[in-house]
Design a protein around this nucleic acid. Structure first.
Lengths: 292, 292
DNA sequence: GCGGAGAGTTTCGATCATAGCAACTCGGTT
DNA sequence: AACCGAGTTGCTATGATCGAAACTCTCCGC
């Protein structure tokens, strides 16, 4: 394996180092690093929703590239339709070409496809069963499972419909649905009891679910099954909408407190990674371990 | 003005020359051309909806780039998140980063904004009044006008609602709406007569409109106003849906047959250009002058 | 209408990043 | 076990790339 990236890269891929301006070439990231290539993407990244139009000077200054060189780069990009230049104002914008590439990417941004490798990795790391659960008209459904290799393990039925009021994934999903949807589901009621710990009162469920929303994940103990506990975290799309939850479930007796903490970390990373792949940008997710 | 591109570049910007493989550097497009930059975009363009995953060899072969070099380019792109590599299969895919750039572009893809420069150019070229008309709940509306500089000119009311059965733009839009919508509008009926040439019979209107659809544009003679004639062509978004029509209208008496042909050409180019800017790829548009 | 400032464009030679060769690893196939 | 094809690494010559400096153009204040 040639360089730093190991397997799936979830977050923090931003090479937009801010001010490369003053210093000469700070961090060269890999033995195969081509500056000319990297510069191209750095140019494209200068264009944001906030500043979609930039002058030559803006570009050359913010990237620390000589204006002459900047002109050459921009002109080349323009000639292939990745930048367009308003002939009046001389300002550059991103070209439609990029939109089309974006659409090619969008076609691959399918939840199951994206989540699967994360489930696999979770199982490797935890040795427990991992699942992907998605919301559906009436009740969440388990749409992907990677089973624990252990002899005694949580068995998850692919395609099974789960209740809204028990199990970690359903509650995590419920937590991030819109207020109306959540209330509709709570109002519908009819919650069954599965174990002594199952919440069946709608108001209690609402409270639980709002707490989950604040926390950004959920650890559930024996509320759906007397022997099982689990950890879930939400997966969002690029609009910031919940598309599902990633979950790891284990025999409750096997889960020490330390293990729980580790699982939470792993599950959250997996869910964040999948969210990122779906185009989500770190917004709504609560950040206990914020990089501040 | 440094190089070949003059003003707005509508179509045919594809530098994807197919086989640059055999020959050495065929066409160098501008004095400011940087091969390294161009190569980056050519790499990205290898990925299409049909072949979204490519191996190193696929890339290097189809671009005629040495595999060593290809590895370096791809690795650099990977390290900045524009390509992702499946560690198992070693295949590359486009990264989510591109999706985000695509979204930045999408925000600029607003019909009025995009069409305006085309209207301006049309007026320059034709010296007649140009308009942008969009469909709306009940009737098309004129949402942008650039007026002819001539003393006697067609006056177009910004924001005016037009009838469906007269004038070129409404009929062009009608032609490209979905079958259901079109039939609903035809069924609603209540068409007024404006001149001797106005079509008021729904069946006749349907026939006219289907003919327009085959033709891809429409030349209307004195059917809304006894002194005015006009040419319209449809503008599509990236789903291939009609978003509006671009129109040039002149005093009927000023329009010779030659002029009409010229106007048709200009209006179609403008509409195609605007469509392109909205992400439309030459699909549904009828192609009399196909490049086949 | 003049002069200066700021942005963009053009030219040109020196130099350093880059291209491609060749050798190597690794996994699968005959 | 030998082979093959894909991918990875090391190394050096060279020509594409970079930046300095001069030029153009437009806008502004006087």
């Amino acid at each position: 394996m040639p360089f730093c990236q190991r397997g799936n890269r979830p977050f923090g891929v931003s090479p937009q180092v801010g001010s490369r301006v003053g210093g000469t070439e700070a961090v060269v990231q890999s033995p195969y690093f081509l500056e000319s290539v990297d510069r191209v993407v750095r140019v494209l990244e200068c264009f944001t929703p906030e500043s979609p139009e930039l002058r030559l000077k803006d570009l050359s200054e913010s990237l620390g590239i000589h204006k002459t060189q900047m002109l050459r780069i921009a002109s080349t990009l323009e000639s292939s339709g990745y930048l367009v230049r308003d002939p009046e104002t001389k300002r550059y914008r991103l070209g439609v070409r990029l939109f089309h590439l974006g659409m090619v990417v969008q076609q691959q941004m399918d939840l199951r496809r994206v989540a699967h490798p994360y489930l696999r990795r979770l199982v490797e790391e935890t040795q427990e069963t991992a699942r992907l659960v998605v919301p559906d008209h009436d009740g969440p459904i388990c749409v992907d499972v990677v089973e624990s290799p252990k002899a005694i393990r949580v068995f998850a039925q692919l395609g099974a419909r789960l209740p809204w009021n028990a199990g970690t994934s359903p509650k995590v999903i419920l937590a991030y649905l819109s207020d109306e949807e959540r209330e509709r589901i709570l109002a519908r009621g009819g919650f069954k009891r599965y174990t002594a710990r199952t919440i069946i009162d709608p108001d209690a469920l609402r409270a639980e679910v709002l707490a989950i929303r604040n926390q950004g994940y959920h650890v559930g103990i024996r509320d759906l099954d007397n022997d099982a506990s689990g950890v879930s975290a939400p997966v969002f799309d690029h609009h910031g909408r919940v598309k599902g939850a990633i979950n790891v479930a284990a025999l409750a007796s096997r889960l020490s407190d330390n293990e729980v903490d580790r699982f939470v970390e792993l599950v959250r990373n997996a869910a964040d990674g999948a969210s990122y792949q779906l185009g989500h940008r770190s917004g709504p997710v609560v950040s206990t371990a914020a990089h501040a």
